[in-house]
Simulated assay, not measured.
Amino acid sequence: MSGDELYEICGQGGERELCDLLRHALNSELRPARLAQREKTIPGLVSRADVVVWEGNDRTRPAAMIEAKMIYASDVVDIRDRWQRYLSADATKLQPAVSAGVPAYLVTWVPAFLRVTREIRYMKGHVDGKLRFDLEHTRTAALDLLGEFGTPLHAASTHATSDDGELVLDAYLTHLAPLRQE
């Protein structure tokens, strides 16, 4: 994928496109032993998971479930409480699967637009076309936020340069733990 394509996807809040790319990447790696599908409902376990991975042709019990979010790096700091609620809703949605022993994960993409020459969907995190926060600060904040739901892993980082700007797309994988009862 070119820097222009990645910038365009992330600049317009492209969570759905990133989920489609995740499904495609999983199928490229896992087939034929496993199959990843998007937007699946499994009665009794989950209402419309972003990605469900099945063992071979067995569609009776999933091998894994994934809920995904894209959060702008500045939002991890500026509006952490809002994203905590969104991630909590996803973690709660997958709890029946976790309780049934199905591995469940949050995949979180955090684009940090280091330089913006053409406006993106959410410009509040930038001043004079530059991210208001240090990249390491937003990464620490992301790990802290995701740590509320399990053990987060900074799984990947992609740097992209485009005619429209420059970004770093971090991907985090959080293996969901059972929610604490309060």
Results as ranks from 00 to 15, higher is better:
Gly3Ile: 04
Gly3Thr: 06
Leu6Val: 03
Gln12Asn: 15
Gly13Tyr: 04
Arg16Thr: 07
Cys19Val: 14
Leu21Glu: 03
His24Val: 01
Pro32Met: 02
Ala33His: 09
Arg34Ile: 00
Ala36Ser: 10
Arg38Trp: 02
Glu39Cys: 05
Val46Glu: 01
Arg48Asp: 04
Asp58Asn: 15
Thr60Ile: 01
Arg61Cys: 13
Pro62Ala: 14
Met65Lys: 13
Met65Ile: 12
Tyr72Val: 00
Arg80Leu: 01
Arg80Ile: 00
Trp83Arg: 11
Arg85Phe: 01
Asp90Met: 02
Ala91Trp: 08
Thr92Met: 10
Lys93Asp: 02
Val98Asn: 14
Ala104Arg: 02
Tyr105Lys: 11
Val107Asp: 01
Val107Leu: 13
Thr108Tyr: 00
Trp109Tyr: 15
Val110Gln: 05
Pro111Asp: 07
Thr117Phe: 06
Glu119Leu: 06
Tyr122Trp: 08
Met123Asn: 09
Lys124Val: 03
Gly125Lys: 08
His126Met: 06
Asp128Cys: 03
Glu136Thr: 11
His137Trp: 03
His137Tyr: 03
Thr138Tyr: 04
Thr140Gly: 12
Ala141Gln: 09
Leu143Ile: 02
Asp144Cys: 07
Gly147Trp: 08
Gly147Leu: 09
Glu148Asn: 15
Phe149Lys: 12
Ser157Pro: 00
His159Gln: 12
Asp164Cys: 11
Asp164Ala: 14
Gly165Ser: 07
Glu166Thr: 10
Leu167Thr: 06
Leu169Thr: 09
Asp170Val: 00
Ala171Trp: 01
Tyr172Lys: 06
His175Asn: 07
Leu176Ile: 10
Pro178Asn: 13
